[in-house]
Design a protein around this nucleic acid. Sequence first.
DNA 1: GCCAACGTTGGC
DNA 2: GCCAACGTTGGC
Length: 152
Amino acid sequence: MNYWLMKSEPDTFGIDDLFKRPEQTEHWDGVRNYQARNMMRDDMKIGDQVFFYHSNCEEPGIVGIMQVARESYPDFTVFDPDDKHFDPKSNPDKPTWYMVDVKFVRKLSRNISLRELKLKTELTDLALLRRGNRLSIMPMNAEQWAFILSLE
DNA sequence: GCCAACGTTGGC
DNA sequence: GCCAACGTTGGC
């Protein structure tokens, strides 16, 4: 079992949007970073636990929990000329970009904000808090996961 | 292979 | 809206 944190802008796709999806499940498309792609493609397994992080908003922070519902498969938005993630160079026979499906588990009782996480010495090694880390998908260990949950 | 220019992310 | 920190692109 692996633990992850995935970022999304609530204006684009927030935790409530996931909640409202059929089966409360949605594909996590649009990842266009190789490091993040590799983690999704190679390491994300069904049942892995994922924090839903709201970025680029009034109070960035962790707002909910999801789990991996389907392991990696090609990100089809790359082949759709009408999609914002369309990439004309992509070859359907040799997909570059992958995605997973995530399923809503629950919302946290409150937003555990970035501001608050930064104050915790227990989390100094958390990828999210490391300087300049802009990855949209980050791994964490079981201790970090449990500690963050204990703040709820 | 180097590196400057450019685009993006995301906190503030 | 600003800007730091990256990642990518493309000329050479």
